Simulated assay, not measured.
Amino acid sequence: MLTRVGRSRLGILWLMAEPIILSSLISLLHWLSGSDLPNGLPVFLFYALGYVPFMMFRSIVNRGAHAIHANISLLHHSRITLLDVMVSRNLMEAMVCSTVIALYMVIATLFMGEPPHQPALFIFGLTLSALLAHGLAMVLASAQVVWEWVEHLVHPFTYLMLPISASFFMLDMMPQETRELLLWNPLVHVHEMNRWAMFGDRVTPYYDVSYVLLWIIMLNLLGMAGLRVARVRLSISD
């Protein structure tokens, strides 16, 4: 927490305020534009619950990719491993955005008459997204130890992921050829599943959980192997 927000109480409050403000502004802009969604889907809720899960993925990847250098002093304690650093940092990012999503769902249920169709499935989808991001963050963090120039690619990569992640659109809106291309991205499967978990049969989802799990296994195994290499490199540099 100290390496993420410092000692200020305002920093801790900003952890929650940042995703709320950004997602609310984006959703408000779409709502004010008068854009309609099929089957009476609520515009504000559709975009808010599309952007916050992506923001969680982006935060874990962006922050996690720099976690080794940000917490290098902790590694002087022999019992603290690189995996400990990555898990704790990424778990914190996931919990913050998950709390914001839970808040939106409570508001949707109490004030908008839009309870989640399958809340347990939405939680499962968030878990998959966090595990994807965690694996990718470990890969990028370990790569930065070996190749410093990787640091400059992380932020552009996550920004480029936004328009192809299905955060702001449904695959059902896309031509078949475009849909098939987008489905190569495992994050698209997660967002499609989350959308169905929230809105039920008002949407037509396209997702394959086994495909997402395969990506999670590959990224996390590669990431943990990369951390072992990175720890050796850090020991040599010390």
Rank of each mutant, 00 (worst) to 15 (best):
L13Q: 05
I12T: 15
L10R: 06
M1N: 11
L160R: 02
L74T: 10
V43P: 01
G226W: 06
L162D: 12
M224V: 14
N185S: 11
M224S: 13
M218T: 15
R231A: 06
Y206G: 00
R233D: 07
E177H: 01
D84H: 08
A48E: 06
L219F: 13
L25P: 01
M55S: 11
I60T: 07
A67H: 04
Y51L: 14
A230H: 05
M1L: 05
R89V: 12
W215T: 12
S98V: 00
L160G: 15
A133V: 05
V61T: 10
H76F: 06
R228D: 00
G11Q: 05
V150R: 12
I26R: 01
T178G: 10
H134V: 09
L41S: 09
T204F: 06
A133P: 11
N71T: 03
L140W: 05
V87S: 02
A108N: 04
I217A: 15
D238C: 01
V5F: 09
M55Q: 14
L37H: 04
M224L: 13
V100L: 04
I236F: 11
M105P: 04
A230E: 14
E151W: 02
A141M: 03
N185L: 07
P156Q: 07
E180P: 01
M224D: 00
A166S: 09
M218D: 05
S235K: 12
L25I: 13
L187Q: 11
S165W: 00
M174S: 09
E180S: 12
V87M: 02
V154R: 08
T178V: 15
Q176C: 00
V43A: 07
E151F: 08
E180L: 11
Y104E: 12
I107V: 15
M193Y: 02
L91G: 08
R58C: 01
A230R: 08
F111L: 13
I107K: 06
L214E: 13
M56L: 09
R89I: 03
L75S: 08
V145A: 05
V150N: 11
A120K: 05
V232H: 15
G50T: 03
D36M: 10
G135S: 08
P175M: 09
S35M: 12
L2Y: 10
V229F: 08
H152T: 12
I80S: 06
I20Y: 03
E93A: 08
D36C: 00
P115Q: 13
N220G: 01
C97T: 14
V87H: 00
H134A: 04
L2H: 13
E177P: 00
A17I: 10
G125A: 14
T178R: 01
A17V: 04
F44M: 15
F199Y: 15
L110M: 15
G135D: 09
L153G: 12
P205G: 14
G125P: 00
L183V: 11
